[in-house]
Amino acid sequence: MPIPTPLTGVVPPVCTPLTPEGEVDVDSLVALVDHLVAGGVHGLFVLGSTSEAAYLTDARRELVVRTVVAHVAGQLPVLAGVIDMTTPRVLDHVASVTAAGADAVVATAPFYTRTHPAEIARHYRLLAGRSTVPVLAYDLPASVHSKLPAELVLELAADGTLSGLKDSSGDLAAFRSVVTGARALHGAAFSVLTGSELTVDSALALGADGAVPGLANVDPEGYVRLDRLCRAGDWPRARAEQERLCALFGMVGAGDPARMGGSSSGLGAFKAALYLRGVIACPATAEPQVPLSADEVARVGKYLAGAGLL
């Protein structure tokens, strides 16, 4: 289905359930999509960071997109990440996910080598020239080692190259510059989405169109409620809901930093929470991420209980 212009609301970056052997658990993926749709979300983003896209083979990426597109059957727009190091590799992913039915693609800047803003602009223009669906930029400097300059994003929005931005930079001032600049585009079809779990109320207050929070896998109803309260201007209740979600987000620290990285802990916590809630069959994360221990999974359960989700 065509994505709304602008795309608004809660668009979770969908986790990819895996079997103990590391294959995509199709039945659990379908159950997770049902869980998110029942929670009232406004779109789905597959093959992002929370989806563990970097760990999936091309065949598994394609399976994820085809499964979600087929199951959603046009109820919601499905955005697909096309994250890879260089433009030729990303173009291959664009062809694959659009053939699988994605309604939009989401791309970071090229990475591995540092890239000049002019080369980043060329990258996105080449993608837009070859893509049959809208292209959104993904600002992820922690992984890409390159911050997308606000002025570059706005230039590409103004000329129609980009249809939106998912901002996971953590730079609220730069995010505000994009939101403010997007208002001056006078009707250009451009969506500004925050990737933060912790500042959705602030982003919406600034004028963002929506949010792409990984924690929405665990509590989609909470983020949909937060979005609704913000749009109604009920800021005291919105703040209370955001603070509840911030407390729930504490689960990402359940893993012991002495034996695992932050990604293992955070993604492991999301999957453990979905497993404990009965949404997915197995909390496995992709190799070489370290799995949570039984005690760490129990710690995740305490966060769920504290948020009224268990």
Rank of each mutant, 00 (worst) to 15 (best):
Gly40Asn: 06
Ala53Asn: 13
Gly40Arg: 02
Gly39Glu: 03
Ala38Arg: 02
Leu29Ser: 02
Gly48Ser: 08
Val33Met: 02
Asp34Lys: 04
Val30Tyr: 09
His42Gly: 14
Gly40Met: 06
Gly48Asp: 14
Val37Lys: 00
Phe45Gln: 03
Val30Asp: 07
His35Asp: 06
Phe45His: 10
Ser28Pro: 12
Leu56Asp: 12
Gly48His: 11
His42Met: 12
Ala31Phe: 04
Ser51Tyr: 02
Leu56Cys: 09
Leu32Gly: 01
Leu36Arg: 00
Ser49His: 14
Leu47Ile: 14
Val37Asp: 02
Ser51Lys: 11
Leu32Ile: 06
His42Trp: 03
Thr50Tyr: 04
His35Asn: 05
Asp34Trp: 01
Ser28Phe: 05
Ser49Asp: 07
Val33Trp: 01
Ser28Val: 01
Phe45Ala: 06
Ala54Cys: 08
Leu29Thr: 06
Leu56Trp: 04
Ala31Gln: 04
Thr50Cys: 13
Val33Lys: 00
Leu36Cys: 02
Gly48Glu: 15
Gly43Leu: 13
Leu36Phe: 05
Gly39Ser: 01
Glu52Val: 15
Leu36Asn: 00
Gly40Lys: 01
Ala31Pro: 02
Glu52Arg: 15
Glu52Gly: 08
Ser49Val: 08
Leu44Ser: 03
Gly40Phe: 11
Leu29Met: 12
Gly43Phe: 10
Val37Ala: 02
Thr50Arg: 06
Asp27Trp: 04
Val41Cys: 11
Thr57Leu: 15
Val26Phe: 03
Thr50Gly: 05
Gly48Val: 10
Thr57Tyr: 07
Glu52Ile: 07
Asp58Ile: 04
Val41Ser: 13
